[in-house]
Amino acid sequence: MPHKPSLVLYEPEIPPNTGNVARLTAGAGVDLHLVEPLGFSLDDKQLKRAGLDYWPRVRLTVWPGWDSLKQHVRDQGCRLVFSTSRSGTSYCDFDYRATDFIVLGPETRGLPEELYAGEPTVRIPITDAVRSLNMSTAAGILLFEALRVSNTMP
Rank of each mutant, 00 (worst) to 15 (best):
L104G: 05
V21F: 13
L38E: 10
L115G: 09
G77Y: 07
L111C: 04
A26K: 12
A28H: 08
A22T: 00
R148P: 01
R79Y: 08
L32H: 11
L32Q: 09
E114V: 02
T84E: 04
P12A: 11
L133R: 13
R123M: 02
V30K: 01
A28P: 04
G110D: 06
V81Q: 11
H72C: 10
A26D: 06
L7P: 04
I141C: 13
L32F: 08
I126V: 15
E113T: 07
D31G: 13
Y10K: 04
Y116W: 14
D44F: 09
L143F: 09
R123S: 00
G39Y: 11
R59S: 07
S132N: 08
N20P: 00
I102C: 08
P37H: 13
W55S: 05
S150V: 02
T99C: 10
P154S: 03
E114I: 01
T99N: 14
L142M: 05
L143R: 11
K45M: 05
T152Y: 01
G65M: 02
G118T: 04
L69W: 14
E107W: 08
G118E: 03
T108I: 04
I141E: 02
V81E: 11
T18Q: 03
M135F: 03
W63R: 11
G110F: 09
I141W: 12
K48V: 13
G88P: 03
V8E: 06
V81I: 05
S6R: 15
E119S: 14
P15K: 04
P56W: 06
G77E: 01
S136T: 12
L7A: 09
I102A: 00
G77P: 03
R109C: 11
L42F: 12
G77W: 07
D53V: 02
H3E: 12
S132H: 10
W63F: 07
S136I: 00
G105D: 09
L80T: 05
T121L: 00
L60S: 06
